[in-house]
Structure formats: C-alpha cells, structure tokens
Amino acid sequence: MVIEVRPATEFEDVRTLVGPKRPDASVCWCLSHRLPSKQNNALHGEERGALVAEMCRSDLPPGVLAYDGDEPVGWAGVAPRADTQFARSRRIPHLDGPEPWCIWCLRVRPGYRGRGILRPLLAGAVEFARERGAAAVEGYPVDNGEQRVDLTMAFVGFRSLFEEVGFAKVADTDAVAGGIPRVVMRRELGA
C-alpha cells in the first residue's frame, strides 16, 4: 500500500471520512475544535456539511486526506492554531515561539486500520502546514504509554506516533482524553 496525502479539497472524500451517514445529522464533521464554540453550536444538520464543502473550495482546506490510490483512507484536521478552539484553550498551554499550526484529529477508515496509514498521514499534515508558511506545528495527543485507549478518544493521536514523525514533547496540559493525560507535542519547521 502506497499512501499519498493531499489537501482536503474533495468534499465527497471528506464526507467519506468525517461525515455522518445521514446528511441531516448534527455530528462533528471535524468542526468541533476548528470553529469558535458559538459558531460550532449554532450549526445544525446539513449546515455543517455545507460549511465543510465551502472550506474544501477555499484557499485553506479543512485538513488533509490520505489516499490508497483513489480511495480516501485517512483524515487529519490541521489549521493555524489561531483559527481553532485551541487559540482560546485554558487546558492546552500557549508556548513561546512562533504561532503554530495544530493537528487535532487523526482518523483512519474502518477496514484500513493497522496498515501503517497514520505515520504518512501525520507527516503529510505537517507538510501541508509547512507549504502554507507554518514555522511550527503542534499536536495534543494522549501520553498513554502502553495503556489502551478507547477508540472514540483515539482521534487525538498518541505521543509515540508524534515522536515517530519528529515531534518532541514540550509541555504537559490540564486536558485528558478518555481519562488519559494529553501533552503538547511540537515540531519546529524552520525556514
């Protein structure tokens, strides 16, 4: 399997990874951390998908997709931290240095899990940010060691995965996912 990571410009492919089975359902669409809380809470049903479609057509797509050939198999939400909920977070510390982009969600489609998609997906998200001028990228994964993580909370990623892609732990947080502490992982991208 050769994984190619591309900007999330194909709405139907984004829908495949993060959209609901019913278009009128008010599910995440990976907007919960991307939008200000008030805007996120005001969007219902098909409005959520319509906003994601608009984002896919914009100069800053909502993230990246991993492909196996033409099949979308993975998703990563990535954007400038200033444009996300993390800009206002009291649980995730703000660190000195260049304003980072952040990666807040990693997802692999059922049936494709366990095939080595996460590493190239995360690396592709970093490259997406670099190509758009990011000087640093952060993620806020769980620091689970060998502890098992509930799949519903695994979307934040794992410290070990971020380390494999060149990130370093730079801070603890007051946040948890599934009862497991989250940490700030950062990768400086340089000039």
Rank of each mutant, 00 (worst) to 15 (best):
G139Y: 01
G190I: 08
R159M: 07
I3N: 08
A175M: 13
G111P: 10
G114F: 01
L121D: 03
M1S: 14
L122E: 02
V78Y: 09
L60G: 00
Q147C: 03
R15M: 03
G116R: 13
I103V: 14
E146N: 10
A87N: 06
D172E: 15
P98R: 04
P120R: 11
L121P: 06
L118D: 08
A191D: 14
A76N: 09
V5I: 13
Y67V: 08
I3L: 13
C28P: 02
K38E: 14
R186C: 05
A66E: 10
R109T: 12
V142D: 04
R57Y: 03
P80Q: 01
V165H: 08
A66L: 07
R187M: 13
P36F: 03
V176A: 12
G139I: 05
K38A: 11
R34M: 06
G19N: 02
V165Y: 10
A8Q: 06
N144E: 11
V184E: 04
E138M: 05
V156G: 08
R119W: 00
P23N: 13
V126M: 08
E138A: 06
E138W: 02
A50K: 08
G178C: 12
P181N: 14
W29C: 00
A136V: 07
P7Q: 09
V18D: 02
L161G: 07
Y112F: 15
R182C: 15
D174K: 14
G19C: 07
T173F: 02
E71T: 15
A50I: 00
P62G: 01
R90A: 13
R182D: 01
A76I: 07
E188R: 10
R48P: 05
P62L: 04
S160G: 11
S32F: 15
A87E: 10
G69E: 09
K21Q: 13
T152F: 13
G157K: 13
S26V: 09
L118E: 15
V5R: 05
L17H: 10
I103G: 02
A79W: 06
E164L: 12
Q85S: 11
L106V: 11
